[in-house]
């Protein structure tokens, strides 16, 4: 019964293929929106980096490269797992797919924990958004406040996306476990995975800007 229900398409679509196509296209259009949302923040970052290159170098030097790079590895691995999960579900191996999605969510949470540790470290050092904290009285460099404000703003927005992405994958995981998501409807997991990849790709740009450049 559940298997028969899962292949039915929504009433207003001609076929399941059309519906899958619409879902994929919808997600890609949404990703374009997300890219421009972050694009505005990147534009701000680049402008201030040109204006205050000295302060931005000091800011990058202060960040912990190891934590940022570990987080990059964590996210890249998570993206690999979710991509494998899509392939597993397409083959009909729901059990493996569920495990892989579970692993992806766990890695996403690991990322958030490491990010939280970093934030705690900054707060201990007296670095808060808006140039508040004793760190800025010790280092009166013009533009340093802008670096850390953008750091907190952009990474927090990214962390919010990680959280939402993990939530979406959680809902999909629930559906796989309950048998509501199978071979025919693997496109739903694919759409969720595409979103997760975007979260990953955004970090790939945040990482060099805040830790390496």
């Amino acid at each position: 019964m559940t298997a028969a229900r899962s292949v039915e398409h929504a009433e207003h679509f001609e076929s399941l293929e059309r519906q899958a196509h619409a879902a994929r296209l919808g997600m890609w259009v949404f990703l374009a929106t997300e890219v421009l949302l972050f694009g505005a923040a990147f534009a701000l970052f680049l402008t201030y980096q040109v204006q205050f290159s000295h302060a931005f170098r000091a800011g990058v030097a202060h960040n912990t490269k190891v934590l940022g790079s570990v987080n990059t590895a964590v996210l890249l691995l998570s993206s690999t797992l979710v991509a494998c999960a899509v392939h597993a579900l397409r083959r009909g191996d729901a059990k493996l797919a569920a495990r892989l999605v579970g692993g992806t969510i766990a890695l996403g949470l690991t990322f958030l924990v490491i990010k939280g540790i970093e934030y705690g470290k900054h707060f201990d050092e007296g670095i808060y958004p808006g140039g508040v904290g004793h760190y800025f009285t010790l280092h009166p460099i013009r533009g340093l406040a802008a670096f850390w404000t953008l750091y907190f703003g952009m990474t927090a927005l990214h962390a919010l996306h990680v959280t939402i992405g993990a939530g979406v994958l959680g809902v999909l995981l629930h559906a796989i476990v309950r048998g509501r998501l199978g071979r025919e409807t693997a496109y739903r997991l694919e759409v969720g995975a595409i979103y997760w990849h975007l979260v990953d790709v955004i970090w790939i740009f945040l990482w060099p800007l805040f830790y390496l450049a």
Partner: peptide
């Protein structure tokens, strides 16, 4: 789809500038 998110982001920065004093667009703070 392509222009609205840019407005969203920039308005959000003005919101935090006004409400939390982050000063991203405040010339007195760079």
């Amino acid at each position: 789809v392509l222009a609205t998110p840019v407005l969203g982001m920039v308005l959000l920065f003005v919101v935090v500038d006004n409400a939390l004093g982050w000063g991203l667009f405040d010339p007195s703070r760079g």
